[in-house]
């Protein structure tokens, strides 16, 4: 978004309200919705990628060596990755800790 919504005049509204910039949802950082986030214990990780597959936000990223981590800007803290992890190597840690 080029400027905050409240700065747009009616003349500046795109025809039909379309958004021309692909992937503009990246601007919405939903990471601050979470009260907990996933932490990997690498020694138990078998690099199966189940967590990457099930993350509803696509917030899990594959790192060098095939291990996984999370982009905290987009992780909503739902915990699905931890629930589905085959070896139980992901634990959900509350934000304050």
């Amino acid at each position: 978004m080029t400027k905050p919504l409240e700065d747009f005049t009616w003349q500046e509204i795109e025809l039909g309200g379309i958004l021309r910039e692909p992937g503009s949802a990246r601007d919405y950082k939903v990471g601050d919705w979470k009260s907990q986030h996933p932490v990997w214990t690498k020694s138990h990780c078998i690099r199966c990628g189940i967590c990457w597959t099930v993350c509803p936000e696509g917030a899990i990223i594959e790192e060098e060596g095939g291990y996984f981590d999370v982009n905290l800007d987009y992780c909503k803290g739902c915990g699905i990755c931890a629930r589905e992890c085959v070896t139980g190597c992901i634990s959900m840690v509350t934000e304050e800790e």
Partner: peptide, 14 residues
């Protein structure tokens, strides 16, 4: 392009 996106209260009247 994105069609049919939200119109937030800040933009709906415009």
């Amino acid at each position: 392009v994105t069609m049919g996106a939200f119109g937030m209260p800040e933009i709906f009247a415009e």
